[in-house]
Amino acid sequence: MAKTIVLALSGSISAYKGADLVSQLTKKGYEVHVIMTKAATQFITPLTLQVLSKQPVHLDIMEEKLANRINHIDLGKEADLFLIAPATANTIAQLAQGLSGNMLTATALALPADTPKLIAPAMNTKMYCHPLTQKNLKILQEIGYKEITPRHSLLACGEIGQGALADLDIILQKVEDTLSE
């Protein structure tokens, strides 16, 4: 039986890489369920990810199409792995504080404690290196998230520094390593 990955995209320019990530994960035989924040939909359309995953894309915590299903709870129960890629500073802060105002954060809070969780930050260098972002990442690591460290690169803002989403081959390797543990 195929392992189920819940892939959550937050609103970084790197969200467009979600299409390639979903495509590669499904080609490897994983069942991929995608969650997007509203901001992520500004960078890539849900339809693209739906076509590639062959699954509905989850956008709104209040949208429950089936009366016998509570999406943010059931997605968490079904996940063999929860992956946030890209994870913005805003999403990281919300998760660290236990906020659940969107589908991504609500699903994260509803995950069973033993569900493996990977987080791949993507943001401006100053935002990534900011003491509050680093503190929030430490909080997430304390509750079981494993960080996939961002690359040092030319960023969308024109600056050079750490903050670019990790290369997809590194993310894919982390997924495979985590699921084989």
Rank of each mutant, 00 (worst) to 15 (best):
M1V: 12
M1S: 14
A2N: 15
K3H: 12
I5E: 00
I5P: 00
L7A: 05
L9W: 03
S10I: 08
S12Q: 08
I13K: 03
S14T: 06
A15T: 12
A15Q: 08
G18P: 01
G18W: 00
L25D: 05
K28L: 15
K28P: 05
G29Q: 11
V32L: 11
V32N: 08
H33E: 12
M36I: 12
M36P: 10
K38R: 15
K38L: 14
A40Y: 03
Q42W: 10
T48S: 15
L49K: 10
S53W: 10
P56W: 07
L59M: 13
I61L: 15
I61W: 09
M62Q: 07
E64K: 14
E64I: 07
K65A: 11
L66Q: 13
N68L: 06
N68M: 02
I70W: 00
N71H: 06
G76E: 00
K77I: 09
E78I: 07
A79R: 02
A79H: 01
L81R: 02
I84W: 01
P86F: 00
N90I: 02
I92F: 07
A93T: 07
A93P: 00
Q94E: 14
G98F: 01
S100P: 00
S100G: 15
G101Y: 02
M103C: 05
T105L: 08
T105A: 03
T107S: 07
A108N: 02
A110T: 01
A110K: 00
P116M: 08
K117M: 12
A120T: 09
A120C: 15
N124K: 13
N124G: 10
T125K: 13
T125A: 15
T125F: 06
L132F: 15
T133A: 12
Q134A: 09
Q134S: 07
Q134V: 12
N136A: 11
L137D: 01
L137N: 05
K138N: 13
I139V: 15
G144Y: 11
Y145T: 02
I148M: 09
P150T: 11
P150L: 12
L154P: 01
L155M: 08
A156E: 04
C157W: 02
E159C: 08
E159T: 13
Q162E: 15
A164Q: 14
A164S: 13
L165N: 01
L165D: 00
A166T: 03
A166Y: 02
A166M: 07
L168K: 05
L168F: 03
I171A: 03
Q173I: 00
K174A: 14
V175W: 10
D177V: 10
D177L: 14
T178A: 03
T178L: 02
L179Y: 11
S180V: 07
